[in-house]
Design a protein around this nucleic acid. Structure first.
Lengths: 343, 343
DNA sequence: TCTGCATGTTATAACGATTTAGCGAATTGG
DNA sequence: CCAATTCGCTAAATCGTTATAACATGCAGA
């Protein structure tokens, strides 16, 4: 009946391997995991048996025993990430892709969790050991869910609770680099385009802008932009600015969409970039690079940041104690044609 | 010792729920899964117990019993997806994001698998029930791995083996739409920029271009572009084309990078788009939209395609028999300023 | 020689869910 | 009124792995 020539392909288990190798199941397990010493000669027999039978471990069974899923999740709380379309998605996906590579290098998979209405329900059917959160809001529903489940997390950007480990992105330095560069290339009157929301990064951007401009004796002008339809809002704002004759000779845009809007406005009024007006923005994504002229911006080193976040999370899962901030590598100014002619 | 006030938070199991609700574990299981009839009143007691105890099912245990991981993977075989940087990543990620949403709607998670050297080893530690492959090559290593493991897959784009289910993207129609549009807007001499590789989609693009141009009595000129550094290669090719005085009045670019290169070349020689030369490209990604003027391109409906692929895969996992092609929704021509003034 | 210790192995007990067989009670049908 | 069926449930078996305790064996030091 169930002879070895049985055609119904029952799954090959660790017991089958053990039988063929002439050892017990426990020894096979130890040989595979390396958790205990196994005689070299025995190990070799086991390896042969595994290859011969084409044994593939049942990961659910392993997971049940070890309590680990070998999987981490990446969440974007940005409720608009999908709705907002390709642009914001790009930012997030750049992080996700790098995190996926890092995770896989450590034999862990990365599961992509899009923004959803009811986290606790939907996520109860997906297994993961921990999560990376990208710029969660203060009342982030995912964080609650993680706490309830007792799962560790690493946050990229300022976290609601600084006790959890998080990757500190130096928003102060980011703003400073941009503003100082404007001053360096000779701009003397440049408004700041910044999101209306009181997200920490926005607040710091405002503060730093004010501080540096004041220190340099330059006028200060903060233009708040609604984050939905930011591009058009920014275009309108800059058109107004020009038409009011404020004599601006620069624009600092905190997100690339507003930078694009500003560029449109400048083109519409026949102002030349960088001769008449210089423009900088924060995120050196595709958008910044494909403006004409391309925009001076910051290489935020998202790939490295994602790598750090994923590695930290995996370290925690392996038992390492970790809390508080981990510094992200400093952003790098990428000077392009929007502030320096011919770059 | 282990009284109910024990602080060590042992995991809440189905047995605990059963005890509190005054039923057996099996009944709790049935109530949750809905696989068997459970008295309404009993079900309610169970629901209360679940809420009270904060029960979360152990997915590894469930998976072990049911043999399902509730997870699907998405692979990019494009070996260069990460190396090639943001552009190609965008294409892939657009698909991944949409697939993630679809999967989650069906209570399945999507795991992101970046290109890796040794699939069989690295993937042996990550659990998934099936996979979506994006434009796999003929000798794709992932496909072998999936076959070995006996896991179902759905391929987006022409598959190495047509027996597996796959989403048919009508490359013929894609090329036709672009070429016909050029003819319609009055272009009479437009070379085709196409990748040198013999990927099926490239081959079809060539054939269709030749067929439609010949039918319209127009000259045919195929320029093959090396896929690494496509942008610069395309720019050089178009510069050469212009300088040789071939009198081109249009360019059909099969990928957006080559379209960008062409645009640079046209700018460099002072040719106006769309007045002197009209340009179309295939993928309406961010790149096409942010050229100046923006490029007429195709909405390939990647989100819908991803949705179809994910849903088909999940259908197969639920036992539905499925093989051969599933038609993707037809691409939509998006007319922009690069072929029609003022769009 | 005996104790102690490291080494490599085995048998067995979990892990926490689903599934199976089966059992009374209630309902139906002839 | 008895047999047959349905209903709602329980007890027990099961999935494949890893962890635990125990056990020989060999070797060192006293």
């Amino acid at each position: 009946m169930s002879s070895s020539s049985d055609l119904s392909r029952r799954r090959v288990t660790v017991k089958d391997v053990a039988r063929v190798a002439g050892v017990s199941a426990g020894t096979v397990s130890n040989a595979i995991s390396g958790k205990r010493r196994v005689d070299a000669e025995t190990r070799e027999r086991i390896d042969r048996a595994i290859a011969e039978l084409g044994y593939v471990p049942n990961l659910a069974a392993r997971g049940m025993r070890t309590g680990r899923a070998n999987t981490i999740a990446i969440f974007s709380s940005m409720p608009t990430a999908v709705a907002a379309g390709k642009a914001k998605l790009g930012f997030l996906m750049e992080i996700a892709a790098a995190a996926a590579v890092t995770a896989l290098e450590r034999n862990v998979a990365l599961v992509l969790v899009p923004p959803i209405k009811d986290p606790s329900t939907a996520l109860s059917t997906i297994p993961f050991d921990g999560a990376v959160l990208v710029e969660p809001a203060a009342d982030d529903p995912y964080l609650d869910m993680l706490r309830n489940r007792g799962l560790p997390s690493v946050v990229i950007g300022p976290p609601p609770d600084e006790k959890d480990p998080w990757v500190r992105v130096d928003n102060h330095q980011i703003a400073e680099l941009l503003v100082d560069h404007m001053i360096e290339v000779g701009a003397t009157n440049f408004p700041l385009l910044v999101g209306r929301s009181m997200r920490r990064s926005n607040v710091i951007f405002r503060e730093t802008y004010v501080a540096r401009c004041s220190a340099a004796g330059l006028p200060v002008r903060i233009i708040e932009i609604d984050e939905t339809d930011a591009e058009n809002a920014a275009e309108a704002a800059i058109l107004r600015e020009i038409d009011e004759g404020n004599g601006l000779d620069g624009v600092v845009a905190s997100i690339d969409a507003t930078a694009s809007g500003a560029m449109s406005a400048l083109r519409a009024r026949g102002l030349s970039v960088p001769d008449d007006v210089k423009v900088v923005t924060r995120y050196d994504g595709f958008r910044a690079r494909s403006e004409n002229p391309s925009l001076t911006a910051l290489n935020l080193r998202l790939d490295e940041i994602a790598q750090i976040a994923a590695n930290s999370l995996l370290d925690v899962l392996e038992g390492k104690e970790l809390s508080g901030p981990i510094d992200a590598p400093p952003p790098l100014l990428v000077v392009r044609g929007s502030t320096v002619k011919g770059m």
